[in-house]
Computed example of a mutant assay.
Amino acid sequence: MSDNPQAEVTTATVKFPHRSRRGILLGLTAPQLIVVSLTGLLLLAVILARGVVGALELIPLWAGIALLVFVRYRGRALADWAPIVTRYALRRMRGQLIWLCRPSRRPVREGLLHLPGTAASLRVVSAPDRRYGAVHDPHTGTLTAVVKVSSRAYALLDPGTQNANVNGWGRALAALARTGQVARIQVIERTVPDSGDALRRYWEEHGQPDAPVAGQVYSELIQSAGPAAAPHEAYVAISLDAKAARRLINQAGGGLTGSFSVLAQLASTFD
């Protein structure tokens, strides 16, 4: 064993081979061959139209094309850099230069809704994390999710609290409208029949049946009105416009994965 343990610990290094310079024809790559072919056709057209003198007048152009084909920069010919620079410019214009994260799983298409007409193409899709689902309409480019909302009994609140709740609801709608990414918002309310068992259990656990007057009155009221109780449930349906939110969807991963990410941010307004 060595007396100097630090001398035995060395940093692992990796050596990469040189870039292959094998071309398709005569050592030229595909972009170089395309430039050479187009240049040959252009030279032939110039000679046929204006003769050799016309071709000699374009010597600066031929020199520039030769530099584009044979001059190399960082192991690549300038002609090889052209498609790379073009793709980079297109991705920059589309805002696709930022990679946020890699989704662990993709959305799952659960099936189609059996509806008549064009609505038959509506698809039920689950989010990548399986926490919620949505309805995807490929024709209109929308993704719709339904959020269940609830609040305390509005009619029993004082006027100040009622006004505060109304203002809060208005601010939530205004925040969604300002994004410009929502195609439609729908408020749904339904009445669900109830046997009154939950109301009676709540009274038995938290009520005071032994109260002198109120206990007897409440007990009689629950016994008579309990079976006729009809709880109200409220929902808000939010439709994401994929065309309007294209930039954010692309930044979030694109496709349904990015759409679910943007839709989750919109739905969080009602948290």
Results as ranks from 00 to 15, higher is better:
residue 146 V to G: 05
residue 246 R to G: 02
residue 48 L to F: 05
residue 160 G to E: 13
residue 208 Q to P: 00
residue 65 I to A: 06
residue 127 A to Q: 05
residue 207 G to D: 02
residue 267 A to M: 14
residue 192 V to S: 04
residue 222 I to V: 05
residue 152 R to G: 13
residue 57 E to G: 08
residue 244 A to T: 07
residue 252 A to Y: 02
residue 258 G to A: 09
residue 117 G to C: 01
residue 170 G to E: 11
residue 123 R to Q: 10
residue 132 Y to T: 06
residue 46 V to I: 12
residue 229 A to V: 11
residue 44 L to V: 09
residue 115 L to Q: 03
residue 254 G to W: 00
residue 1 M to W: 07
residue 216 Q to V: 08
residue 193 P to Q: 06
residue 152 R to F: 08
residue 66 A to K: 15
residue 177 A to C: 11
residue 66 A to T: 15
residue 236 V to R: 01
residue 39 T to M: 04
residue 142 T to F: 05
residue 41 L to Q: 07
residue 34 I to L: 14
residue 53 V to R: 15
residue 32 Q to F: 08
residue 34 I to T: 15
residue 41 L to I: 09
residue 268 S to H: 07
residue 118 T to C: 07
residue 113 L to R: 07
residue 23 G to P: 15
residue 143 L to E: 00
residue 68 L to W: 08
residue 45 A to M: 11
residue 124 V to G: 04
residue 141 G to W: 00
residue 52 V to P: 05
residue 38 L to W: 00
residue 110 E to P: 01
residue 103 P to C: 10
residue 135 V to F: 06
residue 87 R to F: 07
residue 231 P to H: 01
residue 31 P to Q: 07
residue 73 Y to R: 15
residue 212 P to C: 07
residue 143 L to I: 05
residue 266 L to P: 02
residue 81 W to F: 06
residue 109 R to W: 06
residue 138 P to H: 05
residue 91 R to T: 08
residue 246 R to F: 01
residue 169 W to V: 00
residue 251 Q to V: 13
residue 199 L to E: 05
residue 36 V to A: 11
residue 158 D to I: 02
residue 25 L to M: 14
residue 106 R to Y: 09
residue 127 A to F: 11
residue 206 H to A: 06
residue 194 D to C: 01
residue 210 D to A: 09
residue 270 F to P: 09
residue 254 G to N: 08
residue 165 N to A: 11
residue 218 Y to R: 01
residue 149 V to T: 04
residue 126 S to C: 13
residue 133 G to F: 15
residue 226 G to E: 00
residue 227 P to H: 06
residue 30 A to L: 15
residue 156 L to F: 03
residue 181 Q to D: 07
residue 6 Q to D: 10
residue 76 R to M: 03
residue 193 P to D: 07
residue 40 G to R: 14
residue 70 F to S: 11
residue 118 T to H: 11
residue 196 G to Q: 01
residue 230 A to Y: 09
residue 199 L to P: 06
residue 270 F to A: 12
residue 68 L to M: 14
residue 155 A to P: 07
residue 138 P to Y: 00
residue 147 V to L: 08
residue 22 R to I: 09
residue 136 H to T: 09
residue 117 G to H: 04
residue 159 P to M: 10
residue 268 S to L: 09
residue 62 W to I: 11
